[in-house]
């Protein structure tokens, strides 16, 4: 069966969200499932409205800044799905605004979805428990990390030269604690509910 126009549009729209090229997104084999999952989770109409808003925001060069808080949270949830194969717990405010009839809990969309999470590819890894790279490969020095320019080129979202130079400087700066996970309080804490490191007091032994 041919890939539907809806799926093609969905995949195209997810390139600027994920930073991965269409080839990589199709390469997961999960596009249909993720579109279905997103529609089922936030409702067909909400999702169609989100997609329209996102496509317009990208075309106008504004990106996520142009999204409403609820649409921003949907954008995050869809990206989380591509990166991990799981639908996350959404911000309760967005959950309420969408009047979701689903429990607001993280779940894995399908066993094969976990395996195709893109997060592993951000550091040239492979999912734990699948796509094994072969005996002894864990001894090999990992490849140097990608610069921002490389995924930009692949995704076709090149930045202007002066902006790129600024970003290079920013890349080398320390990572803000707000972008890092804090400790799991309990082993059962779902990854999307782990507090960020900036919400956790530091250690001082």
């Amino acid at each position: 069966m041919a890939i539907s126009a809806d799926v093609r549009e969905f995949v195209r729209s997810c390139v600027p969200l994920t930073g991965f090229a269409e080839y990589d997104l199709y390469g997961t084999g999960m596009a249909d499932l993720y579109l279905d999952t997103a529609r089922a989770q936030v409702g067909e109409e909400h999702f169609a409205a989100f997609l329209r808003a996102w496509i317009a925001a990208v075309e106008e060069g504004e990106g996520a800044a142009a999204l409403s808080p609820t649409h921003l949270e949907i954008a995050r949830a869809v990206t989380y799905l591509w990166y991990t194969g799981a639908w996350p717990r959404m911000a309760p405010a967005a959950h309420a605004a969408l009047r979701r009839e689903k429990a607001n809990v993280e779940f894995v969309a399908a066993p094969a979805a976990y395996v195709e999470g893109l997060v592993w590819r951000t550091f040239d890894g492979h999912p734990a428990g699948a796509k094994p790279p072969g005996y002894g490969t864990w001894s090999v020095r990992p490849p140097r990390p990608r610069t921002l320019a490389e995924p930009r080129r692949e995704a076709g979202t090149d930045a202007p030269a002066e902006q790129a130079a600024e970003e290079r400087a920013a890349e080398e700066a320390a990572v803000p604690a707000a972008k890092l996970p804090g400790p799991l309080l309990a082993r059962g804490t779902a990854p999307s509910t782990v507090m960020t490191a900036d919400d956790v007091p530091g250690d001082e032994i």
Binding site: Y80, T84, V119, F123, L184, S192, V194
Partner: peptide, 9 residues
């Protein structure tokens, strides 16, 4: 809970 919690954060 990394690397999934890294994505969330």
């Amino acid at each position: 809970g990394a690397p999934m919690s890294n994505v969330a954060a």
